[in-house]
């Protein structure tokens, strides 16, 4: 059998369809929190699932392509610093999830805690470091403004992932368990 180089076909497809779902969730399913202009980002929870299953490369590509396409389609211009930050989040969470074996076996309490620490760290790196620095270097925006925005994004994304991301990974891993355990009950 010849060995394939580069991304496997499955990774390519996971990137393509993962991105499509990411964009649809981004556009249609954001839950306002009640505080003006802030919303819980369901797409971010999907991203953490895809990155956990398919790894850092697919995670990074889905976030990068998805965010860039969504910006282009909805706003006309692409806000590169945030696109890069989101891509970095996808890579980081995919890397941590692989290291923690999040999607293999059962999703134990220990794994849940590990996953959530990892996602909070990834969110902080992405939104509190990469995005604001990008805003300052690329767009010359005032530091006070971009760091405040960073704090808001990092917290909202961490909360979204903690609630919805944890939930769907738990549901996903439950279906991955061995089926021998199933038997008919009277």
């Amino acid at each position: 059998m010849q060995k394939k180089k580069g991304l496997s076909t499955k990774a390519v497809v996971a990137t393509g369809i993962g991105t499509a779902v990411f964009i649809i969730l981004f556009k249609f399913l954001a839950i306002p929190t009640g505080i003006a202009n802030t919303q819980i980002n369901v797409a971010q929870a999907w991203l953490s699932l895809i990155a956990s299953i398919f790894g850092p490369l697919v995670g990074g590509l889905v976030a990068f392509i998805g965010h860039a396409l969504n910006d282009g389609i909805s706003y006309g211009s692409i806000w590169w610093s945030w696109v890069i930050a989101d891509g970095a989040f996808g890579v980081l969470i995919g890397f941590f999830a692989r290291y923690l074996h999040v999607t293999s076996g059962t999703f134990t309490t220990k794994k849940i805690i590990g996953f959530n620490i990892a996602q909070i760290v990834s969110n902080i790196i992405a939104w509190l470091i990469i995005a604001p620095l990008g805003d300052i270097f690329i767009y010359s925006e005032p530091a006070a403004k971009v760091f405040t925005q960073g704090v808001v994004s990092a917290s909202l994304n961490s909360i979204s992932t903690a609630v919805l991301g944890t939930a769907i990974i738990a549901i996903y891993t439950r279906t991955q368990t061995k089926k021998d355990s199933l038997e008919y009950e009277a």
Binding site: V12, V13, T15, G16, I17, T19, A20, I24, I65
Partner: peptide, 23 residues
């Protein structure tokens, strides 16, 4: 850009309408 990544973008565009209907 690698054709695999380029094709991933094409697939995203191909499936967005389908996913939108499912959604």
């Amino acid at each position: 850009i690698s054709y695999r990544v380029a094709y991933a973008v094409a697939l995203a565009l191909r499936y967005i309408p389908d996913i939108q209907v499912s959604y």
